[in-house]
Design a protein around this nucleic acid. Structure first.
Length: 567
RNA sequence: CGGGGCGUGGCUCAGUUUGGUAGAGCACCUGCCUUGGGAGCAGGGGGUCGCAGGUUCAAAUCCUGCCGCUCCGACCA
């Protein structure tokens, strides 16, 4: 491709809307343009990168027996109503109506559609396992789209669905995908880590997220320094902390003036924080929810949501708390409140003689004991893991890192086959539900994550496997016939060898072309200018290391290929 | 949802406080000159000042409403 005709409008200045590196660089280097909030046009360079990532994904999916299909983006409401998710999905779903007023949505995911598809065609265990996938746009009307392609409302996703005859089959499919995902992100040149994820409302074990490690990541992960445990902090399961038995003392109210925080109370009463219980109040479509954890712990909102039937939850307001019969800053576990769901962390149930709010301004209760003094509506693990908790598996030390979630694998089991009636006959002629899994990769997010992990002050540094072009050939002075002729010759020769190359044939000054080459991030740049042309040399510069090598202009190809191969 | 900031040519922004002929740099077009890290000179094209009302002789500027973008918070009582 000749740069003069390439649609890659580079910008000298950073568009004001972009905050993170990948967003800024994708805009500046002429890869994307915004069409609406969280919705982007992919320009030729971006489209090449996306296709390369998708190609790697396809190869690895096909190796594991995946078959590519293409399902519609527009989906009828009925199947979502059947699975129950039409109402569950909430505002995140883009909904529309046809001319007959029939409801549809833009697919945020395809479990319903693919299950409906397969149940119509698969009758026998002989047709299983079945692995179907597609690569297409997905639509999610995010509360707050941000960071360019990292959290868009329209994005490209690879989604594969596995159908097996039983748990054992699912385990095999799951492992295949886990392995394939590891290979995919390796081939994309990314530093990543698979982490355990809670399978949420679906229950049971069986979900991993693939995190590209980057400071700008939205997710926080913890990992063990001793074993291979790694988990999303939002999802890491925690064992309750055991404490020695104690004789239950009589419960009593104590005045605690001006002690709205746990620290105030414990300082005032001279109690260790481990002897206190604090609350976070949420308001939801199911009413007010009070979530209690030990004073030095943190509430994990995701776990709270998973432990209830609530769909949308938000922090409760002061007036809501007062109306329910409690007091902001002084909320307690004791009964006597109106229309409140009380959720208590498992560790709290092991505590004795603790202090918590008395539901009255400036009053706390001391010597509160579970069972004797209160019975929560729900007892479950709702706290956020901390480094101090240590590895929940081996007791080793935990460390934290930030990550970008680029993929997730998930055991669905029979959640959808049951709701949508996807069954087959086994060899005994007995009807069985298909056992399903789903496996997603954010293709457009992977592109952004690759940039987050590979950039410097001059621009993008593409991993070779997903670079839009491998080499840029830059004649320093396009009007110098000798230089330009040589550049064209080298360009033609590289193309003939199947090496993706851009010839920067613009009548720009050298500096402009160098800046653009760095910004766009070609792994290699071949410079042809007066310094080298007279000596019959080509200058080859690696974007990543800045290393420069001079090659014989008459016989450079083998060496150049070697340099490329080593990148 | 709440709170802050912003909306002026393709991009970055000035001008708004104190109403009075729409500006700069970059980008773009033409010519000259220059050619190893975003050159220089000369000439030129391009803007319903987010939208809709209102006030005024006069509105980018003041008032009201709406829309869009963006950041922060969803923070533990």
């Amino acid at each position: 491709m000749r740069f003069s005709s390439l649609y890659a409008p580079t910008l000298r200045e950073v568009p004001a809307e972009a905050e993170v590196a990948s967003h800024q660089l994708l805009l500046r280097a002429g890869f994307i343009r915004k069409a609406a909030g969280g919705i982007y046009t992919y320009l030729p360079l971006a489209w090449r990168v996306l296709n390369k990532i998708a190609q790697i994904v396809r190869e690895e999916m096909d190796l594991k027996g995946g078959q590519e299909i293409a399902m519609p983006i527009v989906q009828p409401a009925e199947i979502w109503q059947e699975s129950g998710r039409w109402s569950v999905y909430g505002d995140e779903m883009f909904r529309l109506k046809d001319r007959h007023d029939r409801p549809f949505c833009l697919g945020p995911t395809h479990e319903e559609l693919v299950t409906t598809l397969v149940k119509g065609d698969v009758r026998s265990y002989r047709q299983l396992p079945l692995l179907l996938y597609q690569v297409q746009n997905k639509y999610r009307d995010e509360i707050r789209p941000r960071f360019g392609l990292m959290r868009g409302r329209e994005f490209i996703m690879k989604d594969l669905y596995s159908f097996d005859r039983d748990e054992a089959g699912l385990d095999i499919s799951y492992q295949k995908m886990y392995d394939a995902y590891s290979r995919i992100f390796e081939r994309c040149g990314l530093v990543f880590r698979p982490v355990e994820a809670d399978s949420g409302a679906i229950g049971g074990s069986g979900s991993h997220e693939f995190m590209v490690l980057a400071a700008s990541g939205e997710a926080e992960v913890v990992y063990c320094s001793a074993c291979d445990f790694a988990a999303n902090t939002e999802k890491a399961e925690l064992n309750p902390i055991n404490v020695p038995d104690e004789t239950a003392l009589p419960i009593q109210n104590v005045a605690t003036p001006n002690c709205p925080t746990i620290k105030d109370v414990c300082d005032y009463l001279k109690l260790p924080v481990e002897k206190s219980v604090k609350a976070v109040a949420y308001t939801s479509d199911k009413g007010l929810i009070l979530a209690f954890v030990r004073g030095d712990h943190e509430v994990n909102e995701v776990k709270v949501i998973n432990s209830t039937d609530a769909i949308n939850i938000a922090m409760a307001t002061e007036s809501e708390l007062l109306a329910a019969g409690t007091a902001p800053g002084y909320m307690g576990v004791l009964p006597g409140k109106k229309d409140v769901t009380i959720i208590v962390d498992t560790t709290v149930m092991n505590m004795h003689n603790f202090v918590c709010g008395a539901d009255k301004q400036d009053v706390h209760c001391i010597n509160v004991n579970p069972g004797r003094d209160f019975q929560p509506d729900i007892v479950t693990d709702i706290r956020m893991i901390q480094e101090a908790d240590g590895c929940q598996r081996c007791g080793g030390n935990l460390a934290k890192a930030r990550g970008i979630e680029v993929g997730q694998v998930f055991k669905l089991r029979t959640k959808y086959s049951e709701k949508l009636g996807a069954a087959f006959l086994d060899e005994n002629g007995k009807e069985q539900l298909m056992v399903m899994g789903c496996y997603g990769i954010g293709v457009s997010r992977t592109m952004a994550a690759a940039i987050e992990q590979n950039n410097d002050e001059n621009g993008i540094i593409w991993p070779k496997s997903i670079a839009p072009y491998q080499v840029a050939v830059v004649p320093v002075n396009a009007k110098n016939e000798e230089q330009f002729k040589l550049a064209e010759k080298v360009y033609e020769e590289l193309i003939a060898q199947g090496i993706e190359t851009v010839l920067d044939d613009r009548a720009e000054r050298a500096g402009v072309k160098f800046k653009d080459a760095d910004l766009i991030g070609y792994p290699l740049r071949v410079t042809i200018g007066p310094k080298t042309v007279e000596e019959g040399k080509l200058e080859v510069k690696a974007r990543k290391t800045g290393e420069v090598v001079l090659l014989d202009a008459a016989a450079y190809m083998e060496q150049l290929k070697e340099i490329l191969a080593k990148l």
